[in-house]
Design a protein around this nucleic acid. Structure first.
Lengths: 202, 202
DNA sequence: GTCTATATCAGGATAGAC
DNA sequence: GTCTATCCTGATATAGAC
């Protein structure tokens, strides 16, 4: 038994289920993936799976959480935490993410779909995404505010609005890229936008 | 009978179904609206409805087409057609649309959800959206190119990339707005972005 | 605590009667 | 052109074996 009362075997199953679920959600989308499919690939039946997670929605949330925990990106971010990076590093990191995403269509699809689905107030991931966006926007706003204090911002750039624009471009470019992967360079377009807000490019 | 072989009564039913469907899709989303629900509100059964449209997906496509036909926005656009407006009018129109959208949450939700769903190559609306985005981007690119020729563009603004950014911001802001309608002014943020690309504001 | 078996319900789609 | 009946698949809940 672990300290929180779950058996070791149960935990191993949970982890297997979470990783399998994220993989399949990324591959086929949340809605197109049934609990039965996930359970089958884990070598169990779907009620067996639902013992560990009360619902498909709960499974989704747990998988997202796990991704946040495990996938904590490389380099500076892992050590410091994204929201404690210095202003330019935050912006650079967003661009790096965009670059990395171009290799993982499934995950881009998953998050693009989810962030829109989760827009519905009664969606299981609604609070997660509200929180996620609020935090992200606060971090970017702070970065831009810092840069503004240094006099590094172009005149007319308002940190709060610019932050929303940067995040919006990240999301919106994903849709265009998913529709036509050859038609666009997400990282370049994002970098162009950010540099357009700065006096000196990053 | 009409020239294409459908009875007049049948056409009336089709139109009723299309309008009802668009309304309900906009209200509750595509996936959360069942064919049975739509049929019921039309006073028929769902196989009855499916006589007119072979599948739910086909119904969706027909409803989108109808919206494009009927809803042809007001003013200049209706007369000229969006892609024949002059450069500044195109950009102004995008901002006006963003402003109008803030009053129609349901439709914003529908299109936000659909454009992401339709990202999947096998989605019934895939081709519709690929086409839609390609056209929109071409129009915006052309507008910015025109402005560039007039010397109205800030140095460093590349029309093709800037067009992708503008469209991406429109889409991305919708997500943020849907998640937190109070937190953002879509039209203002879009206008800010566009003006940041121009030497003289619109 | 972990899982199987089983039951129930809802949505999309089709066949065939009227 | 519309309805009744039916099939299939997926989501969810519960009983109970181990």
């Amino acid at each position: 038994m672990t300290s929180d009362g779950r058996s070791l075997r149960g935990d191993a199953t949970r982890v297997l289920v979470l990783d399998t679920a994220l993989e399949m959600f990324a591959e086929h989308g949340y809605r197109a993936t049934s609990v039965r499919d996930i359970a089958a690939r884990c070598g169990m039946t779907h009620p067996g799976l639902l013992y560990h997670f009360p619902s498909k929605a709960a499974l989704l949330m747990a998988a997202l959480q796990r991704r946040d925990d495990v996938d904590c990106v490389d380099g500076e971010v892992r050590e410091l935490g994204f929201n404690r990076l210095d202003a330019r590093a935050v912006l650079r990191h967003l661009i790096t993410s965009a670059k990395n995403n171009a290799g993982k269509r499934g995950l881009v699809e998953l998050f693009a779909n989810l962030s829109v689905e989760a827009t519905a107030p009664d969606h299981p991931a609604h609070d997660y995404f509200v929180e996620r966006y609020a935090t992200l926007r606060a971090t970017v706003t702070r970065s831009l505010t810092d840069l503004g204090r240094e006099g590094a911002l172009r005149p007319g750039v308002v940190p709060g609005i610019a932050a929303a624009q940067v995040i919006a471009v990240m999301d919106g470019l994903q849709v265009q890229w998913l529709l036509d992967p050859q038609g666009i360079d997400m990282a370049a377009a994002l970098e162009g936008l950010v540099n357009g807000m700065l006096i000196e490019p990053l």
